[in-house]
Design a binder for these strands. Structure first.
Length: 185
DNA sequence: CCTCCGATGTGCT
DNA sequence: GCACATCGGAGGC
């Protein structure tokens, strides 16, 4: 059986399917519980927008077993992904936005003066609200992710944001109408 | 070793 | 719409 066995959420399924399935899931990290509202799927060698289009020290984690945390740095921010797919295949789901359901005070401390709905809006802001750092790379999320409990979410999709290659894939997914979801540029 | 640039966000024009 | 912070990673030499 898979390293990460979550009811109703098969992390070894195709990455775009997992990205959809993670909407409404809850992630607990560094004192904050986040309900995920926006994700993006990234694959391996066949995805020119993915860090794993080439296998390097940075992307190595994406080739590992599902359920691990992949953290990368972009400019002044840290972004978090959940590794998916069988061990040996490269794919991950970028966490783009969420709603802070617990640990609100802590998240506010990390992002002073920011409206509640915007605390984890955008991957960099989400990482900050969760207190992510490169040291979190490789964290086993097995006991830290709870699959969605409320089925029937209205899910929308569109092109991924901020990439210059493989822009034809509609691999960004979000909960329609949720105020925490980020806007395309 | 060196140069270029980014799965971002904010602030200013 | 555009500049820019800020530094690790990727790739060139």
């Amino acid at each position: 059986m898979a390293a990460l066995d979550l009811p109703g959420l098969d992390l070894e399924a195709p990455v775009e399917q997992v990205a959809r399935g993670l909407l409404g899931a809850r992630l607990t990290l560094h004192g904050v519980v986040l309900r995920i509202t926006e994700t993006e799927a990234y694959a391996g060698a066949d995805d020119d927008a993915s860090h794993a289009r080439v296998r390097t020290a940075r992307s190595e984690i994406m080739f590992g077993p599902p359920g691990l945390l992949y953290v990368y740095r972009i400019h002044t921010h840290h972004c978090g992904n959940i590794v998916t797919g069988p061990d040996g295949s490269a794919s991950a789901v970028l966490l783009r936005a969420g709603v802070v359901e617990s640990g609100l005070e802590l998240a506010r401390t990390r992002r002073p003066g920011v409206a509640e709905a915007a605390l984890a809006r955008g991957p960099g802001n989400l990482g900050r609200a969760l207190g992510l750092s490169l040291g979190d790379n490789g964290t086993d999320l097995t006991d830290l992710v709870e699959p969605p409990t409320a089925p029937g979410l209205l899910i929308a999709s569109g092109p991924r944001i901020g990439i210059s290659r493989a822009t034809d894939r509609r691999w960004r997914f979000w909960v329609e109408g949720d105020s925490s979801v980020s806007r395309p540029r």
